Amino acid sequence: MSFILNSPAFGDGDPIPLKYSRDGDNVSPPLEWQYPPPTTQSYVLVVDDPDAPSGTFRHWAVYNIMGSRDRLPEGATAGAKTESLGHGVNDFGNAHWDGPQPPQGHGRHHYHFRLAALDVPELKLPAKAKVEDVWRAARPHIVGEAELVGTFER
């Protein structure tokens, strides 16, 4: 089976509910995954919007997700008691989830949730690492990748 990522909150290609946007409660959506590669030791999740007027806009990065996990619950922005999740600094300047907030009237934007399975137990990154730095550090260690795309329009 292929490595897959999904959300109980929205399907692939479907609209992301308002609750998960900056116009709503701005909480991260629940995510679940199945069939990771057998060599997976940890995960990295990156969320970006390639439809932003100024180019790709990065909304979230979470890293050092334990390889034994198969989900992130709704609102997973502060880590879990059993592990210390790292968060990259997004393009809003925050080290947490910031949901969709495209410019008013700009049309439908696509939000790519990319989950990478890594062959290392953790990434050693500075506390203020940006989302793109997290992805750059993860790339040499990727053994599998799954993607979920949600849309949002204001």
Rank of each mutant, 00 (worst) to 15 (best):
L45G: 03
G86C: 07
P73C: 02
G88W: 00
D51K: 06
Y20H: 14
F92P: 04
A52P: 02
A52D: 15
A76R: 00
F92G: 07
L18T: 11
G93Q: 02
R22Q: 12
L31E: 14
T82E: 12
I16T: 07
N64W: 01
D12T: 01
V46S: 13
D23F: 08
G88H: 01
V46E: 05
A80F: 13
N6L: 06
M66F: 03
W97R: 01
L72F: 01
D23V: 03
T40K: 05
S68P: 05
S21V: 01
K19D: 12
Y20W: 10
H59G: 05
A9G: 02
N90C: 12
G67H: 05
P15N: 04
P30V: 14
Y20D: 08
A61N: 04
L85E: 01
P29Y: 06
K19T: 10
V62M: 15
E74L: 02
L18S: 13
T56C: 06
Y20L: 06
P15M: 04
S84K: 11
P8G: 10
G79Q: 02
N26V: 02
Y35T: 13
E74N: 01
K81G: 15
L85M: 10
P38M: 10
A9Q: 08
P30L: 14
T56I: 07
W33Y: 12
S54I: 03
F92D: 13
R22K: 14
W60Y: 15
P29R: 05
T40H: 00
H96N: 07
G93C: 10
S54A: 14
T39C: 03
G11Q: 14
T77Q: 06
G67P: 09
T56L: 07
A78M: 05
P73G: 10
P15G: 09
V62E: 13
H87E: 04
D23H: 13
P73F: 10
F10Q: 09
A76M: 09
G67D: 06
V47S: 04
P17E: 13
N6T: 08
V62A: 15
F92Q: 04
